[in-house]
């Protein structure tokens, strides 16, 4: 035990560094809500006074509500589809030995790394050659490319975290594959599924690059914001809108990660031992 002490000894400078790091990670983003309550058209110090005017203005605009509704529809569809595919893929990756698994997993995870602009233009070229008109459907297809790997990455630790023998026990007790999956596997990986739904929804909801290339006449919320950035007089209301989006995203992602925390600590424990 005493051997642990010199490694476990608290490192004060490192601790300060970590706290400063975390603060700096959040500070730039926090200026958005700060100035969204500022009673001035300009984003600058000193703050003029508290106002809810920009939020009020926002809620009166039909374009905002339309964009919001578009984003929500795309997000829900993308979350459901990518999580459904993700559950099967994650089960296959963690449970079955099969030749060529490594390259296949690498291929599936590729969209996390390749610059999204490449996917955006490649899909745009394909769709135009096929004569498919750009719409929310094409945005959703683009988002699925990004969300599917995320979903699988979230779900894999879940499947790794629970003992396959529980599934076998269920099979031994006479359940068939479907009921085993429905009554044993799904409840066990349930938190992972919920987390995957929330995270993929957020990723789709916030995604801009693919939407930029693939959306038609109906804008998603980030596309709407991008369009408004040109007009200085819209700046404060865009700050307000951004603040709402960031707040909702933070809550969703935090809740998702928290629900799924067993998987992370479980895999961390597994890797230590």
């Amino acid at each position: 035990m005493s051997g642990e002490s010199y490694i476990r000894r608290p490192n004060r400078p490192l601790q300060i560094y970590a706290v400063v790091f975390l603060i700096l990670l959040y500070v730039p983003v926090m200026f958005l809500p700060l100035f969204s309550f500022n009673d001035s058209l300009y984003v600058r110090f000193p703050l003029e006074g508290f106002t809810l005017q920009w939020y009020g203005e926002l809620f009166q605009r039909d374009a905002v509500w339309n964009a919001l509704w578009n984003s929500v529809r795309v997000g829900v569809v993308v979350a459901v589809f990518s999580t459904t595919l993700g559950v099967f893929a994650a089960k296959a990756i963690t449970r079955y030995r099969m030749p060529g698994k490594g390259p296949m997993v690498t291929f599936i995870m590729l969209p996390l790394v390749v610059p999204l602009i490449i996917f955006g233009v490649a899909l745009l070229v394909l769709l135009s050659q096929l004569g498919v008109a750009l719409s929310l459907y094409t945005v959703a297809i683009g988002h699925m490319i990004v969300c599917l790997p995320f979903s699988i990455a979230v779900l894999i630790p879940r499947f790794e975290g629970f003992d396959a023998s529980i599934e076998e026990a269920s099979a031994d007790l006479g359940e068939n594959a479907f009921w085993t999956f429905w009554r044993v596997t799904l409840p066990m990986v349930g938190p992972g599924v919920v987390a995957s739904l929330m995270l993929t929804f957020t990723v789709s909801f916030d995604e801009f690059i693919l939407a930029f290339f693939l959306s038609g006449t109906e804008p998603t919320l980030p596309m709407y914001i991008w369009g408004q950035l040109r007009f200085p007089q819209q700046f404060p209301s865009i700050l307000a809108l951004s603040s709402i989006i960031i707040f909702v995203s933070f809550v969703l992602v935090f809740a998702g990660q928290w629900i799924n925390r067993g998987a992370l600590s479980g895999s961390a424990k597994g890797s230590v031992s």
């Binding site: 730039p28 200026f31 958005l32 984003v43 951004s242 989006i245 992602v253 935090f254």
Partner: peptide, 24 residues
Amino acid sequence: TLPFWTSYLLRVFAWKVVLGYEGV
């Protein structure tokens, strides 16, 4: 990892607010 999941566009936008000519 929380900020990573949230809108990339908005994080960039936030830096525009911070670094801008009349910014933070």
